[in-house]
Design a protein around this nucleic acid. Structure first.
Lengths: 199, 199
DNA sequence: TACATTTGCTTAACACTGTTAAATGATTTA
DNA sequence: TAAATCATTTAACAGTGTTAAGCAAATGTA
């Protein structure tokens, strides 16, 4: 019976509706304001039916986290493919990371930090490893002449991530710093780390 | 009447008790678990009396934030005074910052990030500016020969803060990275930025 | 001392939150 | 047509921050 398929499709649709509604609420009112009943209001159901699609609120946030990592990975991949030199690739990828963080501010917040998304994230969500793997690959290519160990690549990766994530965090909670200064920090930081990688 | 004074002292004591109880709960069960009724339980009162000491829950968190900044400022000051060369002072101060973040993990979390402690923090809490002012001062001393503008000092300060705050954030949500790698990142990052300052 | 007033604190309540179980009503199956 | 399944809602529980009302003891006043 084809009606089974139709119902299946409808189910998938409301699943997506739940995620869309959640993101919409968060964009309008912030993470604090997200509640099951509000989501239900937007999708024009009552709260309990949400539990037929997600086991709990956390699962919704987790799904949005996954969505975020997929977009981030796509953006960084596109940025990488625009260049051939590893140096340029690295630059472009981190700029894409930066742009993603502010273009999808709400997703970035749930991906890193809103609440301590506790530790085992990479284990339960392989998508979360894609961006870091992609960057590490380029770093490795750049360091190849030096025959670096895995740990050495890791150090460089974390240095990159730290400075950029730190800069993003600071800019998200403090809107006080001027954009020029921020961009100056971003540019000098990236090129500084790249210099240290090549050395 | 001296009894007035005694009562005043008792009042101050329970105020401190509230803050201590809050921090204790947070240390044992995390920020999510902190509730007014739990605080009341610990101080052996009922929830409503807390509102005679703090206008709301947010105010308690804000007071803990202030406490955090005071400790941080003290630690960084002590670290600075252990050295005379600006380079060594900078190193020591950021190391003190790092150590504070993990020694007072819960305070650090409420100071930066747990929930978006929104923007106007420096305006309503002058203490929050002390550490940054202290560091900027040393950066300025270090750059003095170059006659830097305020913005140039600011760029260096934010670069420092970003990489270290980023590194801390990452280490708080991901306990996966090894301590050796983390410390390697920390050391190379600090000395790298200092090099870029002197250049 | 007797009454009035203030103080310290608690109980009760409101409007929320996430979540689960029971009830309802429509749709499909036999 | 009767039975069974499904989708959905209502009701409820335990928890949250917060406020208002009440009570009982301490204090001030006559």
């Amino acid at each position: 019976m084809a009606s089974k398929d139709r119902i299946q499709r409808l189910k998938e649709e409301t699943r997506i509706n739940i995620l869309d509604a959640s993101l919409q609420i968060v964009k309008e009112e912030g993470w604090q304001a997200l509640s099951m009943r509000k989501i239900a209001d937007v999708i024009e159901y009552t709260a309990p039916i949400i539990y037929e699609y997600f086991s709990n609120k956390e699962a919704i946030l987790l799904e949005l986290t996954r969505k975020g990592f997929l977009i981030l990975a796509r953006d960084m991949k596109a940025a990488k493919e625009k260049h051939r030199l590893p140096v340029k690739q690295l630059e472009a990828m981190w700029l894409a990371y930066w742009n993603f963080a502010f273009a999808e501010k709400e997703l970035y917040q749930v991906m890193f930090g809103v609440d301590v998304n506790c530790c085992e994230l990479c284990e339960i969500m392989p998508e979360a490893e894609v961006p870091s793997a992609m960057v590490s690959e380029v770093i490795l290519a750049l360091m190849a002449p030096n025959k670096p160990t895995g740990d050495e690549v890791c150090v460089k990766y974390y240095t990159f991530w730290s400075v950029i994530h730190g800069l993003i965090s600071i800019n998200m909670v403090r809107r006080t710093t001027s954009d020029e200064i921020t961009h100056e920090v971003l540019k000098t930081a990236i090129s500084g780390i790249i210099r240290s990688i090549k050395a």
